[in-house]
């Protein structure tokens, strides 16, 4: 097993090299000249050229690339042109915010979608099955900014149950000392229940928005995969051996049905992580998505480069994790490593 993971890890390296090259090239072909933007509207051609020189943009591409890789190796993602702050610090402070939101939303979604999918498959054609279909369809068809605004309107404006959508914490609470960057976990480590409650309150609505959106693929995949497994020969054997319904469904059917669900999960997670810009905007969430979009609009290539690189690495790591999980679930996969 360890050898398999090790071998799988080796295949990650060329992917990462490819990612570094592509992010570099990608940011060079983006429209807009960073030097022009940085110099401001009143700039003369000389000052633009000067800025270009200080940024190193006048050098040939291979040389720029070498410097870029050299900086990366030192953990230096460059500085943002618009704020002047190092991209690395921005990303390390914003990535946990996005990750916490996405993970929490995904867990919420899983807790609803998987049981729903299982019941829908076991009781095919029943009211649960129809509910599952309606909820899933409604979930994907509503755009996240709409669901988000609707939730804010209902739970904050009308009912007053939720706090104002002002980011990860309201103005009165202070962030817990950073350990993982996840406020929920950090506040628990610090033993600060007050902050925990406050950050949970802030997190619930945006996470729910994401959950509603990601419900559909997970529930539908669980249902379809369960249906296929339930009609397979070994489930019939289990039934014919008189095993309890629960044993048949959970131990025999669901564990086998999990593989496609795990695959979907990986896809949904990486998709959400990058695409929850709209949710971050609606809830003023200081996430990585909104950071990247702002940078992109300002031709600020260092943050964009950092963002793409981070996302790519995350994606690769996620895929690695899913492959390992595959091996844990299905002994047949272990052989092929």
């Amino acid at each position: 097993m360890l050898a398999t993971i090790g071998k799988r890890f080796m295949t990650v390296i060329p992917t990462l090299i490819g990612v570094v090259i592509v992010t570099f090239l990608l940011t060079r072909v983006l429209p807009g000249d960073p030097a022009v933007y940085f110099a401001g509207p009143a700039a003369t051609p000389q000052s633009i050229a000067e800025i270009r020189k200080t940024l190193g943009l006048d050098r040939p591409l291979p040389e720029q690339f070498a410097r870029y890789v050299g900086d990366l190796a030192k953990g230096d993602f460059g500085n943002s042109l618009s704020t002047g702050r190092p991209v690395a610090t921005e990303i390390t402070s914003r990535l946990p915010a996005s990750a916490e939101l996405t993970l929490f939303g995904l867990i919420m979604s899983l807790m609803i979608a998987v049981p729903l999918g299982i019941v829908a498959a076991v009781k095919q054609g029943s009211w649960v099955d129809h509910t599952c279909r309606v909820v899933a369809t409604a979930g994907v068809s509503l755009p996240v900014f709409f669901t988000g605004l609707l939730l804010v309107y209902v739970f904050y404006y009308l009912a007053g149950w939720a706090p104002a959508p002002v980011g990860r914490l309201d103005a009165f609470a202070t962030a817990p000392p950073q350990v993982t960057g996840f406020y929920l976990i950090d506040s628990l480590i610090a033993g600060d229940l007050e902050t925990f409650r406050a950050s949970l309150g802030q997190l619930l609505l945006p996470a729910l928005t994401l959950a509603v959106f990601s419900l559909a693929p997970i529930a539908r995949m669980t249902r379809a995969s369960m249906l296929a497994v339930l009609s397979s020969d070994f489930v019939r054997t289990a039934r014919a051996s008189g095993l309890k319904g629960r044993t048949v469904i959970i131990t025999y059917a669901f564990r086998n049905a999990m593989l496609p669900v795990v695959t979907t999960l990986g896809m949904v997670f990486s998709f959400l992580l990058g695409a929850n810009v709209l949710v971050e905007k609606v809830f003023a969430w200081p996430g990585i998505g909104s950071y990247a979009v702002e940078a992109l609009l300002q031709s600020d290539f260092a943050p964009v480069q950092g963002f793409v690189l981070t996302m790519a690495v995350l994606y690769v790591v996620l895929n690695l994790l899913i492959d390992i999980l595959y091996g844990v679930i299905d002994p047949r996969v272990r052989l092929e490593g």
Binding site: S232, F234, T237, G242, L243, Y252
Partner: peptide, 25 residues
């Protein structure tokens, strides 16, 4: 009652034995 009967009093062997067993257990 049927569940108690199955496997204990009446049991069954199937065609295609490999498919009749849970592949990941």
């Amino acid at each position: 009652d049927m569940r108690n009967l199955r496997g204990r009093e009446i049991s069954m062997i199937f065609q295609n034995p490999r498919a009749a067993l849970n592949p990941i257990r």
